[in-house]
Amino acid sequence: MRRQRGFTLIEALVALVILAFGLLGVAAIQVKALQSASAGYTQSLANVAAVDAQERLWAALSLPYGCESIPLATIESAWYSHWFEGQSAALGYAQGQGSHIDRQGCRFEIVVQLSAEPNQPHDTFHYVFQLPSQP
């Protein structure tokens, strides 16, 4: 009877298949981690965009006439063009067409809608705050 030494070709191929499945799993985890990091970064930028809109509204409140006199259309237009229009815009790649600022008295709602692709589902972020009626 002959004594066998080392691995057979079948054993080596089985080991390679198991290793390949393991590496595919690691690659899938890496892709998911990159997607999550990108989504987190975009959500952070949406948060900063909303805070910027809020700061613009607070700055306009310095007028002696209260929150009703804030020129919302002008502020919203400048805010939108800064964050969503053009290639230099921070969120220009995110298709923020539905983003806007609403006012009900001195209560403001900032809506930031982000979509990576046109005509694709989007993430919607709502930020609500109240300004004082008299400065």
Rank of each mutant, 00 (worst) to 15 (best):
Q120Y: 06
H122S: 11
M1Y: 10
P64N: 03
Q95I: 15
A90C: 04
Q130I: 12
S62Y: 15
S81E: 01
Q97M: 10
L61Q: 01
P71L: 09
L91I: 12
H126E: 00
V111A: 12
A27R: 00
P121M: 11
Q95V: 13
Q35P: 04
E11M: 04
G66W: 06
S38Y: 01
H126L: 06
Q134Y: 05
V128I: 15
P132K: 09
Q4Y: 14
A94V: 04
L34D: 10
F129Y: 06
T74A: 15
Y65L: 10
A90L: 12
P118V: 13
L19E: 01
A39C: 00
S77C: 03
E11G: 09
M1N: 13
Q30M: 13
T74P: 09
L9S: 02
Y80P: 03
F21L: 12
P118H: 03
E68Y: 05
Q104D: 11
A78Q: 08
A27E: 01
A94I: 07
L63V: 07
A89Y: 07
E109A: 14
Q97R: 12
V111Q: 15
A39I: 15
S115K: 15
I101Y: 13
E68N: 11
C67R: 11
A46F: 01
R107E: 02
S99G: 14
P118E: 03
Q4H: 14
T74R: 11
P135R: 11
R107A: 11
K32Y: 07
R103S: 04
I110V: 15
Y80G: 01
G6M: 02
A89G: 07
S81N: 12
F7H: 09
L91N: 05
A39G: 05
W58N: 08
Q35A: 12
L16H: 02
M1V: 15
V31G: 13
F125S: 07
H126S: 12
V112H: 04
Q87E: 15
I75Q: 03
E55S: 14
G98F: 04
W79P: 01
L9M: 07
Q104T: 14
A20P: 01
R2G: 11
A33I: 05
